[in-house]
Nucleic acid binder design. Structure first.
Length: 490
RNA sequence: GCGCUGUUAGCUCAAUCGGCAGAGCAUCUGACUCUUAAUCAGAGGGUUGAAGGUUCGAUUCCUUCACGGCGCACCA
């Protein structure tokens, strides 16, 4: 590493000088009376004459420092913003001033003083007491260009957050989004629950899991790929409305909208079907957008998006008809297969009709769905937990919704027929045996739960990271995850 | 996994056709009690991502590797 560089050596020397002067460079606490933002709001009207009634104490990180002989200006940054401080030798006393001159950009200090306005009109604290709160021995990036290298920003998010205030805005918004959703669900009498992340049998989605091992139990465990089957167990147990913000883990590739660990909101409502869930979804998301932005119309990467309900609804078959040159309804399985091959889709010939339809959808339709759109009625083969459509058992009551060409969520009328569910599990288990590493095992305990009887239920999953991308206008999922997955540096 | 592309001082970036590795900011020393990309005078700071090759000579050309970015593939 770069511990030997000159800048760090110099800072360590200053640290020792400060210690030698009898000052603790890492004291235990400090009691600010204000935040920088609070000062800007409260003291808008102060003039250039310092007045003792405008006394404040703040703590923050030195971001700029301009020393001029026996006085100095600096900007301190706290969690709410920045403010200028003016430190004079006559203000703090010669001993303190000498120590202050050993402070560097990056150091965290506390100051007390009186708010006034400088000759150039900037609100400033005229400091009379200064205290070192934490000595920084590693230099921050430069004040003007800041930190732009993506690798460093993702690996050292702490430095990114210090240097790039807009990054912090994104993550504060993420917090607000989650809070808005939580508030709305709580108002609607949903119960927030916690279910296992370490699961002996993974399921509820099609994905390769991460595997770990429990020594005492002497058995493998899987990091959840979904929490669906646990939440449905709770519906069996008598919860009518449950949800969980679930950190899920999928052992798959990473790209602009996939991170190996991500956050999914899953919710289940007894006695509802997927049409009810569609209404819930568009209202939940539209209200969230409105709470965050004050409107349901936002711009994402230059595209106007309108979240106001009702959203467009199309069956999967209709959507393929609209966005391709053929009508899948009128084609045989062989003809569909040919269309897929013509479109460049790689198939091994063992795919079912439903799998081919889903592939055609992915290729012809998905990236064209810019405005919020529900695509509903999915092939049964790709939907092992959804209820069949009464009039057509090849399809299930399932929808996904798409915005800006991204899949944002997935929902269905939950399959509650234990006999049918067992059959679907057996098909998955057969696929697993054939080498499909995204298929999953039979979950006997889940089947036992269904055998007790689960009410008709509507379920929903929403990708919170992707929703945050939309609402913060970020191109990459890595920009809405504080610590995105990276290869080790060395 | 494939293709393209990047990696030079703490940070942001230059370096012509292969010819002494530079700037700004930051740092250090000195001056300076309303500055704000403070100013002025001076100084220090490099294994050019790593290893190898070609060459009298490589930041520059070639090979391999490491770590990013973008696209594709995989994947909901």
């Amino acid at each position: 590493m770069d511990e030997t560089n000159d800048l760090m050596r110099q800072r360590k020397e200053k640290l020792n000088e400060i210690r030698d002067a009898g000052i603790d460079p890492y004291p235990h606490k400090y009691e600010p009376t204000h935040t920088t933002q609070g000062i800007h709001e409260k003291y808008q009207d102060v003039n250039d004459t310092p007045d003792e009634k405008n006394r404040v104490t703040i703590a923050g990180r030195i971001m700029t420092k301009r020393d001029h002989g026996k006085s100095s200006f600096a900007h301190l940054q706290d969690s709410t913003g920045r403010i200028q401080v003016y430190v004079r030798r006559d203000g703090v006393g010669p001993d303190s001033y000498l120590i202050y001159r050993r402070f560097d950009v990056g150091d965290i200090i506390g100051v007390s003083g009186v708010v006034f306005r400088t000759r150039t009109g900037e609100l400033t604290i005229n400091v009379d007491t200064v205290k070192l709160l934490s000595k920084s021995i590693r230099p921050l990036p430069e004040k003007w260009h800041g930190l732009t290298d993506k690798q460093t920003r993702y690996r050292q998010r702490y430095a990114d957050l210090i240097m790039n205030p807009e990054v912090k805005e994104v993550f504060l918004k993420r917090t607000q989004i989650v809070q808005a959703i939580r508030d709305m669900l709580n108002e609607q009498d949903f119960s927030e629950v916690e279910t296992p992340i370490l699961q002996p049998i993974y399921g509820g989605a099609s994905a390769r899991p991460f595997t770990t091992y429990h020594k005492t139990l002497d058995q493998p465990l899987y990091l959840r790929i979904a929490n669906e089957l646990y939440l449905k167990r709770l519906i069996v147990g008598g919860y009518d409305k449950v949800y969980e913000f679930s950190r899920d883990f999928r052992n798959e590739g990473m790209d602009r909208d996939h991170n190996p660990e991500f956050t999914m909101l899953e919710l289940y409502q007894a006695y509802a079907d997927y049409i009810d869930v569609m209404k819930l979804t568009e209202n939940l998301i539209a209200n969230t957008v409105e709470k965050i932005h004050g409107t349901t119309k936002i711009t994402y990467q230059g595209q106007q998006l309108d979240f106001s309900p009702p959203w467009q609804r199309m069956t999967m078959i209709e959507s393929i008809k609209e966005h391709s040159s053929f009508n899948p309804e009128t084609l045989s399985e062989d003809e569909l297969y040919s269309k897929a091959v013509q479109a460049g889709i790689e198939l091994d010939g063992n795919e079912s009709k439903g799998q081919i339809i889903a592939e055609l959808f992915d290729t012809f339709v998905e990236d064209k769905l810019i405005q919020p759109t529900f695509i509903y009625d999915y092939p049964i083969e790709v939907s092992p937990f959804a209820k069949k459509k009464p009039e057509n058992p090849e399809f299930v009551e399932r929808f996904e919704f798409f915005i800006a060409g991204m899949e944002l969520g997935n929902a269905f009328s939950e399959l509650n027929d234990p006999i049918d569910q067992r059959q679907r599990f057996l098909e998955q288990a057969a696929n697993l045996a054939k080498g499909d590493d995204e298929a999953f095992m039979v979950d006997e305990d889940f089947l036992r739960a269904l055998e007790y009887g689960m009410p008709p239920t509507g379920g929903l999953g929403i990708g919170i990271d992707r929703l945050t991308m939309l609402l913060t206008d970020q191109y990459s999922i890595r920009d809405v995850i504080l610590f995105p997955q990276m290869r080790p540096e060395n």
